[in-house]
Design a protein around this nucleic acid. Structure first.
Lengths: 357, 357
DNA sequence: GTGAAAGCGCTAACAC
DNA sequence: GTGTTAGCGCTTTCAC
């Protein structure tokens, strides 16, 4: 009978069911619950022999501390909340992946909150489901309204952001403006003067600032080039693609409808650039012979589509943010915020010198 | 001094710091803690007037229940654990997005566990960090070893899977085999006989079964077609691409190196098909004139790349799984498992009739 | 180095 | 309907 039961109960040879408590381990190890607690958490003040004995007992029972009880007693949760505007876009998925890796290595769990649409965002901040549920909060590429920021800070946990800077938060990001300027200059150096931009449509749905910074860089360089030539910049060259392939397609379509057509296009994301490529192809235009296209991100498929782009180290941004969290959590000192990672221009087949005319 | 403190403590005009307790609300509302608890959770047995009074008091204090204390008392956590092999691949990110949406709507939180590599996977099952941390577990497209399954079932929580069937778990998925057969038949009907397959390389890293089912369908149709013609199937036509673009590129390269070249290729994922497209393009071969390519998934960019493919409703799979979890959690009865969602063949520009020779 | 006891903040019986 | 009373399972002084 016993044998049967042991086989049936599987998994570790003992008929262990979930409800094992600290005291069970204590009894088995012949010590008090307090000692077990200390031993299991590796805090100093337990004799080595005792510790090993406790560990053995715990292992035998397949025991694991109850996070709820532990967190009630300590106030710590072992969890970090990650707030994102999207999870199924390349950039965000990649970011999450990077963050997750370092949190996991540190033994922390990741609670994922996707804001969804605007009502969803409002509900999130009204309910604040991560309140008292996390030890730290990470906000991914999502500029916060002041009220939202205050709510998050009111949580009393470290706050880290990627891609935006918020007072009271550590942040990691890239030099959006500088990278975009470099990209634009590349187009200008190729001889392009009629350069269009595909960025975000206003009003910006979830309030990104990134597109704004890239737009500013675009204007800086494009207007500068126009000025040198004594021509007027064309405001119709500033379009929005909503950071999606379909949006990029539409934006490019609009640009092709202009009397004055651009000879080069700078898209604030690769996905929009992909869309632009498609519209161009369908219109029978060749890239880069007829139109140069430059993206931003270095999406997994940019290489496949021969897209020239600005590469940013997305996974590393996530990892860096994760490490920042770990540092804050362990009370370590933080290097001067924000921490900026490098980008680089990756030239592939979608940009070329302006064809002489 | 008091004023200074209140200002410093910021955040909502009241000097409220995190540690608000049920009793504070009770005192303010002039009722007992038990009543507050009942009112806040919306359980029946509280007079309407009382409830509103309590709600008002709670709102005034900006009070929210402590999840840790609540979960210690009830045993419920309001959280579901989602286990994935990858988070930054299109299919998984999409799945997660779908699941998250329904969990969020139901007020549940999502704890994300990315297994990472094999050691990571081993560590995950050794530590089982979600133990006692979640009310249910969802496993995404990840066939479990028996020991792993038993560990998860030992958690005593509902177990739901997507893309795999596990004893003791509810599951949702697609008819992989049927969909792949349909895809292959399409190629055969186009006149193709030399059809290659890009699937998973053995040994399978994280143990997918999906590729196996698609491979089986490939063989069934391809071998059948060969038999009719009295030719021998070419085993070299079965290649592995690791479900990545780069893998697909390599696999296609290998296929082009064969003396007997395929006239059509069926890839078990769009990403691998993308890679194949690229290799073909680089080799100077035209798609579909020289080689037809058929994918599987209907990735966001399949449309962009004119890839014919088998569309599967990924987000819906996630949503369905989420709903299954909600049903289990509310003790509802579950429809006969597994629940299979439909797929459809999407014909775009990458497949065409075999050019007459 | 180890144990006893007092919470952590909530919920669930059980009375009233 | 509402209040009282025990816990839920751990951590943490404070003694020893």
């Amino acid at each position: 009978m016993v044998v049967t039961r042991m086989v049936a109960s599987a998994c570790n040879g003992r008929g262990q069911e979930m409800p094992d408590k600290l005291d069970d381990v204590a009894r088995l190890a012949g010590v008090s619950a307090a000692t077990v607690s200390r031993a299991l958490r590796g805090v100093p003040g337990v004799a080595e022999r005792t510790r090993t004995r406790v560990l053995a007992a715990a292992a035998e029972l397949g025991y694991a501390i109850s996070p709820a009880a532990s967190s009630l007693a300590t106030g710590r949760t072992g969890t970090v909340g990650v707030i994102v505007p999207y999870v199924d876009r390349w950039y965000f998925a990649r970011l999450i992946s990077g963050v997750e890796r370092v949190l996991r290595d540190a033994g922390l769990s990741l609670l994922l909150y996707n804001l969804g649409d605007d009502p969803g965002r409002a509900r999130f901040f009204a309910d604040l489901p991560l309140r008292r549920r996390v030890d730290a909060v990470l906000v991914l590429s999502l500029p916060l309204k002041e009220s939202e920021r205050e709510l998050l800070r009111g949580l009393g946990t470290p706050l880290v952001t990627i891609g935006t800077e918020e007072p009271g938060a550590d942040s990691v990001g890239i030099d959006d403006h500088g990278a975009a300027v470099t990209a634009m200059r590349h187009l200008v150096q190729l001889g392009h003067r009629e350069i269009a931009f595909i960025g975000e449509n206003a009003p910006i749905p979830l309030g990104f600032t990134t597109p704004l910074r890239r737009l500013a860089a675009y204007r800086e360089v494009y207007h500068g080039a126009c000025r040198e030539d004594g021509r007027a910049p064309d405001p119709a060259f500033e379009t929005g693609g909503g950071f999606t392939v379909a949006g990029g397609e539409r934006a490019m379509g609009a640009l092709l409808g202009l009397r004055r057509r651009p000879t080069a296009v700078f898209a604030a994301s690769d996905e929009m650039a992909f869309g632009a490529l498609r519209t161009l192809r369908r219109a029978g235009l060749r890239v880069p012979a007829d139109v140069s296209v430059l993206g931003f991100d270095d999406h997994d498929l940019a290489d496949l589509l021969e897209l020239s782009t600005v590469a940013q180290p997305v996974a590393e941004l996530g990892e860096r943010a994760g490490k920042l969290i770990l540092a804050r959590l362990s009370g370590g000192k933080i290097a001067t915020s924000p921490s900026i990672l490098g980008t680089r221009l990756v030239l592939r087949g979608s940009t070329a010198p302006l064809a002489g005319r």
